[in-house]
């Protein structure tokens, strides 16, 4: 199982998809639970559409001193299935780590196509986001999937950060997150 003293999560997305926002919301939720956490983007002047990274560390034990980018994550979250062809998303992922992918495909198909040997969790986040938000922005949806698959924070802990971040759009984002939470499939 994942070592709970320090959980390291790496988000893969494209500029504009909200990977950085996902990381931010998750860290804020963990902090609101009284945990230690931090979140930061891959540093640099990112452009819309370009592959981007965001990072979260969570510890319930001690303050987090390391600030280097995460190269050996416990969990990888992929917001855009198209990235699988151009980025090695499982690079450095711990052997007992988990990868959570937004995809319409079945897990087995992905496993074979991209040679994924880690615990794999799939969710059709784009469809949920289109249906509930009206746009294919999957950041909040993927947070729901992550929480279902890992339990790193409580689902309710996201409500407050989401409300602050999205204002009048918060309710729909919370709905998208909840739907993803319900629909996420975890298979060994």
């Amino acid at each position: 199982m994942i070592d709970t003293t320090l959980i390291e999560i790496r988000w893969h997305g494209r500029g504009g998809q909200g990977a950085v926002t996902s990381a931010e919301l998750l860290a804020k939720a963990a902090i609101n639970e009284g945990k230690y956490a931090h979140a930061f983007p891959s540093f640099g002047p990112e452009r819309r559409g370009a592959p981007v990274l965001a990072f979260v560390r969570i510890s319930s034990q001690q303050s987090i001193k390391i600030r280097a980018e995460i190269t050996q994550p416990d969990i990888v979250v992929v917001l855009d299935p198209g990235l699988l062809r151009i980025v090695n998303v499982t690079s450095g992922l711990k052997t007992n780590g988990m990868v959570i992918i937004n995809t319409k495909k079945q897990a087995e198909q992905l496993r074979q196509e991209f040679n994924i040997n880690h615990l794999l969790v799939t969710i059709d986040a784009t469809s949920i986001a289109r249906q509930i938000l009206g746009v294919p922005i999957t950041n909040t949806t993927m947070v729901g999937a992550l929480i279902r698959a890992t339990g790193v924070v409580k689902l309710e802990s996201l409500f407050d950060p989401l409300s602050h971040r999205f204002g009048h759009l918060a309710e729909r984002n919370i709905d998208a997150m909840k739907k993803a939470y319900q629909e996420t499939v975890v298979k060994e």
Binding site: E24, A27, I31, H38, A39, F40, F43, I64, R67
Partner: peptide, 11 residues
């Protein structure tokens, strides 16, 4: 420090 502090969300 740029990014390592400026762009970090933390408690």
């Amino acid at each position: 420090d740029g990014f390592h502090l400026s762009h970090m969300i933390e408690p």
